[in-house]
Computed example of a mutant assay.
Amino acid sequence: MGSLTARYRHTSLTPFPSSTFALPLLKLALTVLAFLSPAAAGDLYNLVYKGCANQSFPGGAAAYGQALAALSSSLTARAATSEFYKTTASSANGGQSLFGLFQCRGDLSSSDCSACVSRLLPMWPSLCGYAAAARVQLSGCYALYQVSGFPQISGTQMLYKTCGSGGGGGDFEVNRDTAFSQLQSGVAGGQGFYTTSYGSIYTMAQCEGDLSNGDCTDCVAQAVQKSEVECGGATSGQIYLDKCYISYSYYANGVTSAGSGGGGNGVLDVSFAGMVLTFYISEEGDLCAWFQIKLMIVDCFSVIRANREDSGHSGGRGSRGGFSDHLLVVCQEFDEKER
Score class of each variant (00 low, 15 high):
24 P>G: 02
135 R>G: 05
70 A>S: 15
157 Q>R: 09
52 C>N: 13
248 Y>E: 02
169 G>D: 01
33 L>I: 04
317 R>Q: 09
268 L>E: 03
237 G>C: 05
280 Y>Q: 10
243 K>H: 14
311 S>I: 12
106 G>Q: 03
236 S>E: 06
38 P>C: 04
36 L>W: 11
199 G>S: 06
97 S>E: 03
144 L>S: 15
234 A>M: 08
326 H>M: 15
339 R>S: 12
271 S>I: 14
247 S>P: 03
17 P>D: 01
212 S>Y: 00
51 G>M: 09
36 L>R: 15
272 F>L: 15
219 C>P: 05
296 M>R: 14
23 L>E: 04
7 R>G: 14
165 S>G: 10
194 Y>K: 05
164 G>I: 11
255 V>I: 05
272 F>A: 08
211 L>T: 15
36 L>H: 11
56 S>A: 15
166 G>I: 06
99 F>K: 11
237 G>D: 03
284 E>Q: 14
58 P>Y: 05
144 L>G: 12
278 T>P: 04
34 A>S: 13
110 S>W: 03
77 A>V: 14
156 T>K: 13
28 L>K: 06
206 Q>A: 11
9 R>T: 13
268 L>V: 12
14 T>Y: 05
25 L>D: 06
302 S>H: 10
124 W>P: 04
27 K>V: 08
157 Q>N: 07
334 F>I: 00
145 Y>K: 03
111 S>D: 07
23 L>D: 00
216 C>M: 09
46 N>F: 13
170 G>S: 04
218 D>F: 00
128 C>Y: 10
249 S>N: 15
37 S>G: 00
89 A>V: 06
325 D>S: 14
63 A>R: 03
141 C>G: 07
3 S>L: 01
36 L>A: 12
76 T>W: 00
230 E>T: 14
182 Q>D: 01
283 E>F: 11
75 L>Y: 12
294 K>H: 14
227 S>Q: 01
15 P>W: 07
150 F>W: 05
115 A>P: 02
21 F>R: 12
164 G>P: 08
12 S>H: 07
249 S>E: 15
169 G>C: 06
180 F>P: 04
311 S>Q: 13
307 N>I: 07
329 V>F: 09
321 G>N: 08
294 K>C: 13
241 L>Y: 11
275 M>E: 15
223 A>K: 06
139 S>F: 12
334 F>R: 03
214 G>I: 01
125 P>R: 04
98 L>F: 06
265 N>R: 15
181 S>V: 03
105 R>I: 03
78 R>W: 05
207 C>N: 01
160 Y>C: 01
332 Q>F: 05
194 Y>Q: 09
318 G>S: 09
29 A>V: 10
325 D>E: 15
56 S>I: 10
128 C>D: 05
328 L>K: 08
66 Q>T: 08
51 G>F: 09
139 S>K: 14
20 T>P: 00
145 Y>V: 09
111 S>P: 02
331 C>H: 14
185 S>K: 07
156 T>A: 07
219 C>D: 05
316 G>C: 09
243 K>E: 05
236 S>D: 04
259 G>E: 05
259 G>S: 13
106 G>W: 02
165 S>I: 08
179 A>V: 04
225 Q>M: 02
219 C>S: 08
2 G>F: 07
